[in-house]
C-alpha cells in the first residue's frame, strides 16, 4: 500500500508558481513548459496556482524585504511532503539584483530550496528537469517520513 502511494506521489507533481519579483523572463519560460511544445502535463504536472493543493513550489525572481513574508506564507501553506525549485539566476542567488539595497538575495535566504535551476532566463527544458528532480526529492521525503520543521 505504501508502495503504491509512493509511486503515485512521483507521478503527479502539482506545482504552484510564485513570482518573487523576477523580470518576467523566467515566468514566461515556466509557462512555456505548459504549452503544446513541451507539454509538461505528460508527467502529470499541473500548475494549480494554490499552495494548499501543491507539492512543488517553483519560485522565480529575487527575494526582497517586501516579498519574503509572502513567500514564507505560501511555503507554510503547502502540505507536507513538499519541495522547492528556484528557477533562474535571480531565484538561486539574487542574480543581477544581488546586493541591491532592498534585496535579500536568493530565495534560499527565506525558505529551504531543494533544486536550483540556473540560467537567465532558465530554459524550459532545464525547468522541466528541475521539477522532475524535485519529484525525486519528494519521493525521498515520503520514504524517510521527513517532516517539515522550521
Amino acid at each position: 500500500m505504501m508502495g503504491i502511494l509512493q509511486t503515485a506521489a512521483t507521478k503527479s507533481p502539482w506545482i504552484v508558481h510564485f513570482d518573487c519579483g523576477s523580470c518576467n523572463g523566467c515566468d514566461i519560460e515556466i509557462l512555456a513548459c505548459l504549452t503544446p511544445l513541451y507539454d509538461v502535463e505528460r508527467f502529470g504536472v499541473l500548475n494549480v496556482g494554490n499552495p494548499k493543493h501543491a507539492d512543488i513550489l517553483v519560485v522565480s525572481g529575487t527575494a526582497n524585504y517586501r516579498n519574503a513574508r509572502v513567500l514564507r506564507n505560501v511555503y507554510d501553506q503547502m502540505p507536507w511532503p513538499k519541495a522547492v525549485v528556484a528557477v533562474g539566476a535571480c531565484a538561486s542567488t539574487g542574480g543581477i539584483f544581488r546586493n541591491c539595497y532592498n534585496t535579500l538575495g536568493g530565495v534560499d535566504k527565506v525558505i529551504p530550496v531543494d533544486v536550483y535551476v540556473p540560467g537567465c532566463a532558465a530554459k524550459p527544458e532545464a525547468i522541466m528537469e528541475g521539477v522532475l528532480q524535485a519529484v525525486q526529492v519528494l519521493e525521498k521525503r515520503k520514504e524517510t517520513g521527513e517532516t517539515y520543521a522550521g
Binding site: 510564485f18 499552495p51 494548499k52 509572502v70 513567500l71 506564507n73
Partner: peptide
Amino acid sequence: KRYVQPFLSGENS
C-alpha cells in the same frame, strides 16, 4: 494535522 491560515495569495498578516 496542522492548521494554516486561509489562502490570501500569501499576503496574510
